[in-house]
């Protein structure tokens, strides 16, 4: 989103010298507490650990200082206060385009067989109709994977996101065994393009660079939502399948149309469900059922 700064428009050349009242008031959309990226150059304002606003170069569009590891680790473990992130997936709209999978794999340095997000072909047992179901980490509120981790390598944050710290992970794979959604994947060998990534500071929220012998999984694009942007998969979807937002605001935004709707209404009107609620995992990902002949 173009987070235009105040006064930017006043520099614009009007075709005729006429003032338009009100223009130049605020038009900045969501900004979480860190970033305020300007649209016109490659500088980005960031909040440093000691709460100073500095400008850094952000050629790759990242809006936080990606070189300060202790800061990245700190914000990665703490999460964003006052938020509770949720995703809604409208199965009726999924056409198996797999742009979400591609975007996810390219952002997270994953090999083709590694999936943080996997679009599965499912069959409705009663009608025999097939439908496509994007399946990702459910960011459970009672996460069985976190329960069994022996070293705090996977953890839940105050904003509900379950992350993996691949510098802590010992590779025991207990979390993989414990996850009923098979949402986790492992770096059995050297990760994809590891040479290329080897000098990059580890960003826990993006979980890049990936490390051999550690577990990786969907992070709800924690690095992106910190910048007020929707997750990678959501923005990549051409069919409007994904909604993402903050349950505390009761608002979710569609990744394709950018339409913002009330979460509670969306779930109620479409008889939303969660995956395997009987297991008591309390997922943060909701599914809107595929409709017949849609």
């Amino acid at each position: 989103m173009g987070n235009k700064e105040k006064g930017k428009q006043s520099r614009r050349k009007f075709l005729q010298n006429i003032g338009v009242a009100g223009v130049g008031a605020i038009s900045a959309p969501a900004i979480l507490f860190t970033a305020c990226s300007s649209s016109s150059d490659k500088k980005t304002k960031v909040l440093t650990p000691d709460n100073k606003l500095i400008e850094i170069d952000s050629e790759n569009g990242l809006a936080i200082d990606t070189t300060d590891k202790s800061y990245l680790n700190k914000i990665g473990r703490e999460g964003i206060p006052g938020k509770k992130f949720v995703m809604v997936i409208d199965l009726g709209k999924c056409r198996n385009e797999r742009k979400c999978m591609k975007a996810c794999q390219s952002e997270h340095q994953l090999k083709p067989e590694q999936h943080h997000l996997n679009v599965l072909e499912m069959e409705n047992p009663s009608s025999g109709q097939t439908y496509f179901m994007p399946k990702l980490c459910q960011h459970c509120d009672n996460p069985p994977c976190v329960t069994v981790c022996p070293v705090d390598a996977t953890f839940k944050r105050q904003d509900g996101i379950v992350l993996v710290d691949n510098e802590r992970c010992i590779g025991c794979r207990f979390c993989i065994a414990a996850c009923p959604y098979s949402a986790r994947t492992f770096n059995w060998t050297e990760p994809r393009d590891s040479e290329e990534y080897k000098d990059i500071t580890y960003n826990m929220e993006l979980n890049v660079p990936q490390k051999k012998g550690t577990v990786t999984k969907c992070a709800f694009s924690a690095d992106r939502i910190r910048e007020g942007k929707l997750p990678y998969c959501n923005s990549a979807c051409p069919n409007g399948v994904y909604y993402f937002g903050d349950a505390n605001e009761d608002l979710v935004t569609n990744g394709t149309t950018k339409e913002t709707v009330r979460l509670s209404k969306l779930l109620k009107q479409n008889s939303a469900y969660t995956l395997m609620p009987e297991l008591g995992t309390q997922p943060s990902v909701y599914y809107l059922p595929a409709r017949e002949n849609s």
Binding site: C169, I170, T214
Partner: peptide, 21 residues
Amino acid sequence: DMGRPDRLHHVFLHGRIQSPI
């Protein structure tokens, strides 16, 4: 069986007593 046997000490440094491991 560990993916990262070099991090065995993490078990003692960061051990989580909730884990059956």
